[in-house]
Design a protein around this nucleic acid. Structure first.
Lengths: 235, 235
DNA sequence: AGATTGGGTGAACATACGTTCACTCAAATG
DNA sequence: CATTTGAGTGAACGTATGTTCACCCAATCT
């Protein structure tokens, strides 16, 4: 981008998400091992990529140099951690997959009252979504856009997630009228709907409780319709 | 990408999707007006962008120069047609929106037999999808990834599509038990499911009739479940 | 017929990019 | 304590990018 742009343009708070050397000896005594430091830098690179995508761009449009810039590291360092941008992308998929599955644990932890069950689940989902915006943004964004490789990896995580959800519903004894294949199909529908809702929620301007309630209501109703359909299902 | 790569690498069939000057006087007599030629070049630029995305990349990762290269035009020409890459993106959204809505006309044209209705619709959809791969690929890919601006435009087209579908179902007298808001919610669910299926189908390797049938079957069953739910719905 | 318009051109620019290399110097190893 | 290891560095490379400009010349207008 040549356009003259006289000002250096970088207010130092968009860049340098992490201090450049992360306080080599943070507090008098804290000897931090070599492996720990490596892991930390790796995490900074992953965070930097997510952060940039948070500014509203697809993974495919990130450059190695800007990722390292935000991570507070020189470009060459990148290769100590990843072979490729694709490689980093796959690491992000894995990280996000873990986050996704913790959502199920979270939902299990919150016992589900048979009445208001859907509303409760949706509330758990909304809270969890807000606590892990960037991971959901990444998954929702790359699950049908961008590179075929990353998309395939995301879809694999998603299938994993669906399987786990299927098992949970089976174990809870809900929907006893459906055989496993059908239950899986229904869970796939739920997850598609959930990902769609995630995109909706993430796009909402921060302070629009009205729209927020509207989307939540729509999401609840869509889930209700799915469960009604599942109950009425005959093989 | 500096890596040496001794061969020039461009077999002239990946690039130059369109001949550079498009036969100034194609056949002795065919005087082509100025406006027509402009429109044609514009179309070449749009096609070039879609073509590149067809190679498995997000819109956000395309560069102005490669688009013009594939369109068979010099970079500077781009600005005679679009102010911006974003501008071109929005034009693509509009084009794709038109394509989407023609799907509904297509489905209306094919009278829907009350029995096997879902299977028929899905078949129409699959045919139409194959005939307009790139537009669907674009819409499905950008509806939750990439730039916020383009995503918003895609979602607006999608809402338009949902509204039209709602009206169609209302007019056909299907689902008379649902009020308009609920019918709209259900159609939203259908469209989300359809977009998801589109991504699945587009990712299928060309010659895998087994997987193809599997995905088709899954899609049909998901739709069936939705309609079952809609029938059981009580306000 | 002559003047005007405007889509397409080709060269030039400053900047950003991915990748390589020889290097440093603290932590790990013995 | 002496040696080895390897994450992070800084400079350099060749190439690609977005944008501008003066120019060309056929279709259009008068």
């Amino acid at each position: 981008m040549p356009r003259v742009e006289p000002a250096p343009v970088k207010p130092a708070e968009l860049e340098a998400l992490h201090p450049p050397s992360e306080a080599l000896h943070p507090r008098g005594e804290s000897p931090i091992t070599r492996g720990e430091r490596k892991q930390r830098t790796r995490a900074h690179l992953l965070d930097a990529a997510l952060h940039l995508m948070g500014e509203g761009r697809g993974f495919g449009s990130l450059s190695l140099r800007e990722i390292t810039r935000v991570a507070g590291v020189v470009p060459a360092s990148f290769y100590r951690h990843f072979h490729d941008l694709n490689d980093l992308g796959l690491a992000l998929v894995e990280e996000s997959g873990v986050t996704l599955r913790r959502l199920l644990r979270e939902a299990r932890r919150t016992g589900l009252p048979p009445t208001q069950m859907l509303r409760t689940s949706v509330q758990v989902f909304r809270d969890y979504l807000n606590a892990h915006r960037l991971h959901f943004l990444f998954v929702a964004g790359e699950r049908s856009g961008g590179s075929a490789l990353i998309r395939a990896a995301v879809r694999a995580e998603e299938r994993h997630f669906i399987d786990e959800m299927t098992q949970d519903l089976r174990q809870l004894g809900m929907m006893p009228g459906l055989n496993t294949a059908t239950l899986q199909m229904a869970c796939g529908l739920v997850v598609t709907t959930m990902m769609n809702a995630a995109t909706d929620f993430l796009d909402l301007p921060k302070d629009q409780p009205q729209l927020e309630r509207e989307f939540t209501e729509n999401f609840v109703r869509q889930l209700r319709l799915i469960f009604l359909g599942a109950r009425a299902w005959r093989e």
